[in-house]
Amino acid sequence: SRHTFEINGERWTVEGVSEELKEILRAAERASNDEAERLLRLALKLI
């Protein structure tokens, strides 16, 4: 499935992501810059 999210003013669209990964991306959208970066690094390990 496709998911579009915005982090630090940048929009991203990813396809074929699991519900778990979507949850991480949604958390990154709400997080501070440092926390968002940490969550994105974690998410990339899952891809």
Rank of each mutant, 00 (worst) to 15 (best):
L42C: 10
S18V: 04
L42I: 11
A36R: 12
G9D: 03
I7P: 02
R11S: 14
I24R: 01
L39C: 03
T4H: 14
A43D: 00
N8M: 11
A36N: 03
R41Y: 08
N33H: 15
F5E: 02
L42F: 08
I47F: 07
H3T: 09
K22A: 13
K45E: 15
E35A: 06
E20W: 10
A31V: 06
A36K: 11
N33G: 15
E15F: 11
E20L: 09
K22C: 15
A27M: 13
V14D: 01
L46W: 07
A28R: 02
G9V: 01
L40F: 06
R2F: 12
S1Q: 12
R38C: 12
L40M: 06
T4S: 12
A31E: 05
D34G: 15
L40C: 06
E23S: 12
H3M: 14
K22N: 09
K22E: 12
I7C: 13
L21S: 03
R41I: 12
K45F: 13
T13D: 07
V14T: 04
V17Y: 06
R26M: 12
L46R: 04
V17L: 10
L21H: 04
G16A: 10
A43G: 02
L40V: 06
G16W: 12
I7D: 02
E29S: 11
R41P: 00
E35N: 04
A27I: 07
R2G: 10
I47H: 04
A28D: 00
H3G: 06
V14E: 01
A28N: 01
T4V: 14
A27D: 07
R26F: 08
R30Q: 12
L39A: 01
E19V: 07
F5S: 02
E29T: 08
L40G: 01
V14N: 01
E35K: 04
E10M: 13
E10W: 06
A36F: 05
H3F: 15
E15H: 11
L42W: 09
N8Y: 05
R41L: 13
S18M: 04
L25S: 00
L44S: 04
N33D: 11
E37S: 09
F5I: 11
R11A: 10
R2Q: 12
V17E: 06
E29H: 05
E19W: 06
G16E: 09
H3Y: 12
D34C: 11
N33F: 15
N8F: 10
V17H: 05
V17Q: 04
L21F: 06
S1N: 14
V14K: 01
V14L: 09
D34P: 12
W12N: 00
F5T: 03
K45S: 15
K45T: 14
E19T: 07
L44P: 01
N33M: 12
R26S: 12
L46F: 08
R38T: 07
E10Q: 13
I47Y: 06
R41E: 13
T4Q: 10
K45M: 13
A36Y: 05
E23T: 11
R11W: 14
L46G: 06
R11Y: 15
D34I: 11
E6L: 14
W12A: 00
K22I: 15
E19H: 08
D34K: 10
G16C: 11
N8I: 03
E10G: 03
L44Y: 04
R2W: 11
A27F: 06
R38V: 11
A31N: 03
H3L: 15
K22R: 13
S32F: 08
L40R: 03
R30K: 13
L39V: 02
E37Q: 10
L44I: 14
A28Y: 07
E6W: 13
A28T: 02
A27L: 11
L40T: 02
E10T: 12
G9M: 03
V17F: 07
S32D: 13
I24H: 02
S32E: 13
R26Y: 08
E23A: 13
T13K: 03
E15N: 07
H3A: 09
A36Q: 10
T4A: 06
L42G: 04
I24P: 00
A28V: 06
A43N: 01
E35V: 09
I24S: 00
I7N: 01
A28Q: 01
R38Q: 09
I24G: 00
V14P: 01
G16S: 10
L44A: 05
E35C: 08
S1R: 11
A28H: 02
G16I: 12
K45D: 15
L44N: 03
I24M: 10
E29V: 06
L21W: 04
L42N: 04
E20N: 08
A28G: 02
L21P: 01
K22M: 15
E37T: 12
E15K: 05
I7G: 01
E19D: 13
A28C: 03
L25E: 00
L39R: 00
E37Y: 09
T13P: 02
R2I: 13
K22S: 09
K45I: 13
T13S: 07
F5N: 02
W12Q: 01
G9W: 03
K22D: 05
I7A: 01
A43T: 01
L40N: 01
R2K: 15
D34F: 08
A31Y: 03
L46C: 11
A28P: 00
R38F: 10
R26E: 11
I47M: 13
I7R: 01
G16H: 12
E23P: 01
V17A: 15
G16L: 11
L46D: 04
N8P: 01
L40Y: 07
I24W: 03
F5R: 02
R38E: 10
A27E: 09
S32G: 12
L42Y: 09
A31T: 05
A31R: 03
T13C: 13
R11G: 04
E15M: 09
E15D: 10
L39I: 05
S18Y: 04
L40D: 00
I24Y: 04
E20Y: 13
E10N: 07
N8K: 03
L25T: 00
R11I: 15
E29Y: 03
E6I: 15
A28K: 00
R38D: 08
E19A: 08
K22V: 15
S1Y: 06
R26H: 13
R2D: 12
F5Q: 03
A31F: 03
E20H: 09
I47T: 03
L46Q: 08
R41H: 14
E15P: 04
S18K: 03
I24E: 00
E23K: 10
E35T: 06
R30W: 06
E6Y: 15
E19L: 06
A43P: 00
W12C: 05
A31C: 05
R26K: 11
E29I: 05
W12P: 00
A28L: 10
S1M: 13
L40P: 00
V14Y: 06
I24N: 00
A36T: 04
E6H: 08
R30P: 02
